[in-house]
Simulated assay, not measured.
Amino acid sequence: MFALETATVWLGLASAMIEGPELSADEGGFVLARVVESLGEVLPIAARAVASNPAVDLPLYGDAGRDIGTTMRDMRE
């Protein structure tokens, strides 16, 4: 329950921050790191909830997201 509560707070905070004035790189990096940590804690909870559904391949989605993120990062360089 604590992981879900924490993730909910970080989602609300991050949402409010991106709707306001532009964040500095340090501010954005800090918030993004906390959101990633929270996702890392709540995704296993969600995965357990859908584990009995053979149509759900969460590692596949994680790999695809990582590939997209790497490509986007490399495009900025």
Rank of each mutant, 00 (worst) to 15 (best):
S38T: 07
L39S: 12
M72S: 07
A49G: 08
P44G: 06
L43F: 12
T70Y: 07
V36K: 15
I18K: 00
Y61R: 14
A33N: 14
G12S: 06
E37P: 03
E41I: 03
V31D: 01
E19F: 00
E5M: 12
A14Y: 04
F30T: 12
F2Q: 15
S15N: 04
R48P: 13
D57T: 04
I68F: 13
N53E: 11
T70P: 00
A47Q: 14
D26T: 09
V9F: 13
F30K: 06
F30P: 01
L43Q: 14
L32D: 12
G40T: 07
A64F: 08
A16F: 04
W10F: 10
L43E: 14
T70F: 07
L43C: 07
G62N: 05
M72V: 11
G12N: 09
E27T: 03
G29H: 05
L58F: 08
L39A: 12
T6N: 10
A3I: 13
A16Q: 06
V31Q: 03
V56L: 05
P59V: 08
T71H: 04
L13V: 15
T71Q: 05
S52Y: 07
D63N: 12
R48Y: 13
A49S: 12
G20L: 00
L58A: 07
A55L: 09
G40A: 08
G12A: 05
P44V: 04
T8L: 12
I45A: 05
E77Y: 02
G28T: 01
A33P: 05
W10H: 12
A14E: 00
L11D: 03
D67T: 10
S38P: 03
E41F: 09
D63G: 07
G69V: 09
M75P: 01
L32N: 09
G65N: 10
V31K: 01
L43R: 11
S24P: 00
V9P: 01
R73A: 10
I18P: 00
V35P: 01
T8K: 12
V31M: 02
E22N: 00
V36H: 12
T71W: 05
E37R: 14
G40N: 10
A47P: 08
S24T: 13
R73H: 09
S38D: 11
V31P: 01
F2R: 15
L13A: 10
A49T: 10
A33L: 13
E41T: 09
G62M: 11
A3S: 15
V36L: 13
A49D: 08
D26S: 09
W10C: 05
A7F: 02
V36S: 14
L43A: 11
L60D: 14
A7Y: 01
D63H: 13
A49R: 10
A47G: 08
V50H: 06
M17K: 04
G65V: 06
P54I: 02
A3G: 14
R76N: 05
I45N: 06
S52P: 03
A25C: 01
G20V: 00
L11P: 00
D74A: 12
T6D: 10
A3R: 14
A3P: 15
G40D: 07
G29L: 04
S38Y: 02
E19R: 00
V36D: 11
